[in-house]
Design a protein around this nucleic acid. Sequence first.
DNA 1: GCCGTTTTCGGCCCGACTGTTTTCAGTCG
Length: 574
Amino acid sequence: MPIHNTDIAAIFDEIADLLEIEGANPFRVRAYRNAARTVQGLGRDAAKLIEEGFELTRLPGIGKDLAGKIQEIVRTGRCAELTNLHKRTPAALSVLLKVPGLGPKRVAALHQQLGINTPKQLLRAVRQGHVRELEGFGAKTEQRIREAIEAQLKKKARFLLLTATDYAQPLVQHLKQSRGVKDVIVAGSYRRCNETVGDLDILVTATRSSPVMHDLVAYDEIKEILSHGKTRTTVILKCGLQVDVRVVDRISLGAALQYFTGSKAHNIAIRRLGQQRGLKINEYGAFKGEQRVAGATEASVYAAVKLPYIEPELRENRGEIEAARLGKLPKLVRLADLKGDLHSHTRASDGKNTIDEMAQAARTRGLRYLAITDHSKGLAVTRGLDTRTLAKQLEEIDRLNENLKGIELLKGIEVEILEDGRLDLPDAILAELDLVIGAVHSKFDLPGAKQTRRILRAMNHPHFSLLAHPSGRLLEEREPYDVDMTQIIREAGQRGCFLELNAQPQRLDLIDSYCQLAKDEGVLVAINSDAHQPGGFDNLRFGVGQARRGWLEAKDVLNTRSLSALRKLLKGTM
DNA sequence: GCCGTTTTCGGCCCGACTGTTTTCAGTCG
């Protein structure tokens, strides 16, 4: 059983939980949490790095001890430190920490004084009214714990960025109508374009006398008010999404935006830099003693620590601060840089519209070319195309191209990659196309080595241009299939073919770290809508967001090329 | 446990809100 970074991170997080409950040195606890985050965000499996002789202590926050523990976990799948902790402190206590309102101190009190180890035992104690009798607890706390556990039993997953957008926009409009309000900005992971968000952080600037917080709690989509103060209010919407709203003075907008955009790791790093320069940085500004030296704009806060502005999508403390210091920040790709879309469907397979309708929709969104790539026959549920129906579609595209203005259609196919890695259509018809997108839609559960071989064989087909949705995951629904993405990216570089960043909000499966790896290996990434109807093109912005998180610039993206440049690149693959 | 134009010790990000208190600890982001 190979050890993945997620396994290592989970062990470090559990160690941190249990140490915290034991009342260990909080900085030691933080060291384990930092290490968990670092390992999780590596992009490549630590096991592989070790194999290649990489010195783990070069990673930030990983010293001699933690490097040794990572090696131990990779080698044995276990960590003696955790095993020892389990002898003293029941493992289930770390689950209790996940109950909102319960931190290490309260979990320790529940365990020591009432012998509670599991959420179930806690729920029983709460129902019997034992919890309120403990020092530091009261009837209200008990009630909240009860509700939290009951809610956790039917807990809500994270929200897709698209879903969060649908809830955020009307709320932003509601707040903007409040008297005295100037700016309303959604910060947090939403602004960093995370693929999913757990809650919304909304920043408001308003006059001191503005009733905005009062108006917020009167919003009719609210299910519950968790806290309600003059500058901070937390509510839960009926859909289950938690929303934190903060009001700041305009003079602090930049500092507040910087602070509430996060990520936490990025902010800690920035504050540390401030500290080294004798500055205190908080959500109100950067201060030298009593004197404010920055805060009105985000750029001023970064300038205070001698850095250029850093785009929100980069703020994960994964090298962006170092890059900023060296003047090597990427000039991130923008939606407007996309000149075309290389993946779309029509009524010929499982799309909803005609080729012409899709072309018009793409054109009105400013695209100059669109590849029609319906499914091939192997994907029977979509009534995929065979040689004869595809040939007919090619003729239709030729006819349409003669009359279309402002956009050109490319001939393509999303061809099934069969279980053994062959493609689902004969070479003769594939040779007539402008591009061939290969995709896996079946046999998701092959063992990793076999799945990887399957895809590599398909990529080596002489007509293969582009690998669609490389991991096959559907967020909150289906895990990625077991595949060695590092190897696939490397071989794509050697083979000279391309990888897709599928912009559907539940896919986005060329995750940020793989985007970075593709960039390092010189593999161009196509940001494709995979549109099945006109509205599908609007998803491109989510693809661009993910690409920006992966440090991609316009030059790293295939479909920022002009049509003639694109044709040359595609020829190279055929 | 990590880290160092403070290099082997002594620091480690910072503030709002809540509940149980009566001056503040705990939790959260």
